[in-house]
Each structure stands twice: as C-alpha cells, then as structure tokens.
C-alpha cells in the first residue's frame, strides 16, 4: 500500500511536471496542434479527397485516430526525455535523489507527467479534428485504455532515453531516427492490409502498428490486428520498460557516481 509520504512525493513530482509543460505551453502544446492541423489540411482535405475510402471510411476519418495517436506518442516521449534530461543537466534531479523518495515514485511521477502531456495534446488534436470531420466513437473504453497504455509506454521510453543521454543531441536521436519512422510506418496513414505480404509481416514487428490499430478500433470499429494481441503487446512493453527504468534508476546509471 502507498504510504502518505510516497503519495505526497508522487503528487509533488506530478505537479512539477505538469506545471513545467504548462509554463512553456508555446513550446509544448502549440507546435503539435499546428503540425497536426497541417496534416489534416494536406493529407485529409487536399490529398485525402482524391484517395477515396480506406477500410470502408473516408480517408480523413481513417487517419484521425492515427494522427491523434502520433501526437500522443511523440509528446509523451519528448516530455519525459527533455524534462528528465534537463533535471540531470541542471542537477536538480539530486533534489529527488537525496530525499526519501522510492525509485518507483520517481519513475511513476515522470511517466505520469509524460502521460498527462501526451493525453492533453491528444485532446487538443481531437478538438482540432472536429473542424475537419465528424468523429464517431465505437468503444470509448478501448480508446481510453489504448491511449493510457500507449502514452505510458512512450513516457517510459523517454525516461530511459534521458537516463542514458549525455547531451541534448542524445534526446533527439531516438525520436528522429527511430520513433518517427516507426510511427509513419505504423499504419497512421494507411491500412497495412494494402501492403504486399512481405511488408505486412515486417509491419507486425512494429509495436506502433498495434497501438494505432487498437486506437482506430475504438473510434471506427476496424483494425488490422487482433485487439487482444494489441493489448498483450502494450502490456509486455510496459512491464519490460518499467523494469528497465527501475533497474537503471536503482543502479544510478547516469545519476550517481
């Protein structure tokens, strides 16, 4: 059971994290809104109208869940990566390390902060999408569960990235060279059933395919993968990344001499 001391410590880290991205909202909330608006205009309205239907829905409706998920992924990841690395760089991470804060509270606090920003940006993008198309909801619980688990996965990823990072360049390498390609190839803009069999097989090792499809199922009721498989993949990633993050913080990798 969580002691009141740990609960207050967790609230403090969460409070600090949410305040951080709200304080710099021009850097954290506005850019994804503008970027996703451009996607809606270009891929949805301009090009989408020529593409026709995808998976039985007009192209704009098809890409909306993927674009929301894309913004959730990038924002939950980058929030923790930049915040935790900045705390390391300014050494104010020591404020937590010298205090009686258990490692799991530190990890949960930062992950909670990353999830908050990811989900908030997801809500903003959803509101913007309403200007371009009607949004239908097939199963709200699948939407909420998928967005929560996915943001947790990438917040944990961002934390691990920040632990290893030695410079600000190191926290942009993974998003640029790993996250962006995986997201673009993760079925945001197309159904993987359109790919040749070989590339369909390759796509199945991309975890983002499962997240995007589970999320799309919540809105449209269609998916390229089994829902149970998608949640199993999410569960495995969360357990694996949580264990890794806990091990790194306990060992003090990049934090203690």
């Amino acid at each position: 059971m969580m002691s009141s001391t740990n609960f207050i410590a967790l609230k403090s880290i969460l409070h600090k994290e949410v305040h951080r991205f709200m304080r710099i909202w021009v850097q954290t909330l506005v850019p994804p809104a503008i970027t996703i608006s451009l996607y809606f205009v270009i891929f949805g309205s301009l090009i989408g109208s020529r593409i026709g239907q995808m998976g039985g829905f007009d192209y704009m409706s098809f890409i909306v869940p993927g674009l929301i998920m894309m913004s959730v992924i990038t924002n939950s990841y980058s929030n923790v990566a930049s915040s935790f690395f900045s705390a390391k760089w300014q050494r104010n991470v020591e404020e937590m390390l010298v205090a009686p804060v258990p490692n799991w509270v530190i990890v949960a606090g930062y992950v909670g902060g990353g999830m908050s920003r990811g989900i908030l940006v997801g809500c903003i993008v959803t509101l913007i999408a309403l200007f371009f198309t009607d949004i239908q909801i097939h199963n709200i619980w699948v939407i909420l569960l998928t967005v929560s688990l996915t943001s947790a996965v990438f917040a944990l990823g961002g934390l691990i990235n920040a632990v290893f990072a030695g410079s600000f360049d190191d926290i942009s390498i993974i998003p640029t060279f790993v996250l962006t390609p995986l997201t673009y190839l993760g079925g945001v803009f197309y159904s993987i059933s359109l790919l040749p069999p070989f590339w369909q097989g390759v796509s199945q090792i991309n975890p983002i395919v499962y997240m995007v499809n589970a999320f799309r199922y919540g809105f449209l009721g269609i998916s390229d993968v089994e829902l149970s498989t998608a949640f199993t993949v999410l569960g495995i990633f969360i357990i694996g990344l949580w264990a890794t993050a806990m091990y790194l913080i306990k060992k003090g990798i990049g934090l203690r001499s």
Binding site: S3, S4, T5, N6, I8, A9, K11, S12, I13, H15, K16, E95, M96, A99, P100, V101
Partner: peptide, 9 residues
C-alpha cells in the same frame, strides 16, 4: 514547496 513534497510535507 516541491522539495518539501519529496519528504512527504
């Protein structure tokens, strides 16, 4: 205030 929070205040 945040620092105090880490100690459960």
């Amino acid at each position: 205030v945040n620092q105090a929070g880490y100690y459960g205040v």
